[in-house]
Design a protein around this nucleic acid. Structure first.
Lengths: 236, 236
DNA sequence: CATGCTATTTATAATTA
DNA sequence: TTAATTATAAATAGCAT
């Protein structure tokens, strides 16, 4: 999407790489956010930049919640691909014991905002606030310079509107990068199929530059290529 | 990027939502893949569709590796005042129990609205919203009909204004503690540190229904009302 | 349900300020 | 250097299969 078509291989030039990372990270997070909202899906996104900096995003729920849900998936041992159940369990335990998520949020508060999804959060917050304001009828209040809303009915309808509540809540979570722990078991009404269940094989192949068959092989070796039905037809 | 500009809100039509999910999920994974290759970053992406199906992606490392890296971040297990994990746990349990007791307060929202709490909340929320709006410069947005705030400096200064944030956060905590949706109330009481640490004491007093002064005292007695902020003066 | 097909909207690489 | 701008490449919404 730039002036030229970019090969998907590591960007050698450090500066360019950094710039690209910054841009694409934002883009990715935005996409993740949009997906989470549009389709009401839980999304957790974790990134470590080459310099070791962490970026993360989660939609409706906190990162930990989603990780816990992932870790608790019953299908893990079944898949055969997902080994090391014990390791995952230990991870979960650790998650549960790390009650100090404030640290990270604090860090963000204190100024380390570069790794946060600032613009997207702004956008998101606008929506949230706007929506909430509509419901709360605070807009009127703002205009009228602090006339209190004592309309119980309106308040009630807003407060009981779990959607508005959810969005607000989620906004807080996202914004704060608040990682509350997973000490309560997630719903876990989940059926895991496989890794990248419906990722069409040819899609991956298309993504990969031809000379990156190595990557393809890597993916394949790690079970990222379903190699089921349609994948069998020699695509590469 | 389609025939029409799509609002970022949940797609009501189930079929459309499913299609969009499918497409955007693939797109997101592709983006994640490209980022991981182009910039040599570890990326972990976990998605749960509404139907509970898992999709995930990770770059050259396995999901578990990345999760482990994330979980083992130094910031997670440190955190000054939180040495006493077990105590924290007990606090959490108690808080949650208190929240359950408050459950009946929910009825206020459901029907009988002539309670003090509601009005009080309304009042409080006005303040919160107004304050946040000022900082976010969303007021202008509202007037200008949704002009996005992309002034990162302003956002940044707002984001780093932890006071507004904390107040917002605390408002959510209290509010959610009165909400019966169990899915969302636990996280609220989870982050007790943030909850009590920066809560101005009198603010908490105001928020909590009288019967919950018990929990307040409990917290205070155990040093969980540090009164860091402006409440520093009146340590009860 | 997943794909193919445009018309459009987005994302972004290169360039410039 | 970092932040805008611009020219292109990509993604994708609505449809039709």
């Amino acid at each position: 999407m730039g002036r030229v078509k970019l090969q998907i291989k590591i960007i050698e030039n450090m500066a360019n790489r950094q710039v690209t990372y910054s841009k694409r990270r934002n883009g990715l997070i935005k996409k993740a956010y949009e997906l989470s909202v549009l389709c009401d899906v839980d999304v957790a996104l974790i990134m470590f930049s080459p310099s070791g900096r962490l970026s993360l995003f989660s939609g409706n729920k906190s990162i930990e919640e989603i990780l816990a849900r992932y870790i608790n998936l019953p299908g893990h041992e079944r898949g055969g691909r997902l080994h090391n159940q014990e390791f995952l369990q230990r991870v979960l335990v650790k998650l549960r014991r790390d009650a100090d998520q404030t640290h990270q949020a604090t860090r963000i508060f204190e100024g380390d905002l570069s790794e946060v999804t600032t613009l997207h959060e702004a956008e998101y917050w606008e929506q949230i606030l706007e929506e909430t304001l509509k419901r709360l009828h605070v807009r009127k209040i703002l205009d009228k310079h602090k006339t209190l809303v004592h309309d119980s009915d309106k308040m009630s309808s807003w407060m009981t509107s779990s959607i508005a509540l959810k969005r607000f809540w989620h906004a807080m979570l996202i914004f704060l990068s608040m990682n509350e722990d997973a000490r309560y078991s997630p719903p876990a009404t989940t059926n895991v199929d496989e890794f990248v269940t419906s990722s069409p094989h040819n899609m991956l192949v298309d993504w990969l530059p031809q000379r990156d068959l190595q990557s393809l092989n890597f993916l394949n070796a790690n079970g990222f290529l379903p190699l089921r039905d349609e994948a069998q037809s020699g695509k590469s």
